[in-house]
Amino acid sequence: MPNPILVVKDLTKKYGDNIIFHDINMTVNEGDTDVIIGPSGTGKSTLLRCINLLTKANSGQIWLDGEEITAPGYDEDEVRQHVGMVFQNFLLFNHLTALDNVKIGLSKVKKLKDDQAEAKAMQELDRVGLADRAHHYPGQLSGGQQQRVAIARALAMDPRIMLFDEPTSALDPELIGEVLEVMRKLALDGMTMLVVTHEMGFAREVSDRIIFLEKGSIVEEGPPEVLFYTPKFERTREFLWKITELYGKKESDS
């Protein structure tokens, strides 16, 4: 039986009269990697931010691990500890070394002892292959390395689910591969992931399900082989292959 980690019900977000997305329903099961695709401006990033409560949705409900996190009075800071987030622009803490970036959540939020926090942070850096860059500052790392540190920072909190917001869009083409490799490994290790991306190679090979979002609502969702070859809507096929032409080739070449 699939165990739903994240359940989103009738989620709607608008700024004034401008509807970003409306009545979104989705479920992410434990161990699954689901990919959200869609044209820019369709509210994919906002959806992720609503899921970890960085932005408040106007209506709808979200359950994490069976608990409704949108219930009034629910501790948002607590929720975010269990929902890892990786941003398009890495957003490492500029004044901290790679190690301290990963460590700070452990020592200041989880209140681990210094040596425990350090050991755990080192372990997570090792997991993304950057143990040898532990004492470098973000400004001394390449974009790909920064994004891997950001992934390690999120992983260190032992999240129930990882949200990725276009994690490779800000990277030079030759640096995309190393980040996708880390993500692929995570997926294989059984991490539950919800990924907004244009990397169709990754979506096709790694994801359990693709969700096609356009104009603020879900057009179609399903396993990659269905969406690529036998989608219900012609629009889905058209978009998927257009994106594959633009982005997908690099990934399958690497």
Binding site: L54, V79, Q81, M85, N89, L91, N94, V109, A154
Partner: peptide, 16 residues
């Protein structure tokens, strides 16, 4: 402001 968002994303309170 994104630094604040990244900090909140790992569960830090605003004050922290």
């Amino acid at each position: 402001g994104a630094q604040m968002m990244a900090a909140r994303a790992i569960g830090m309170s605003r004050m922290r």
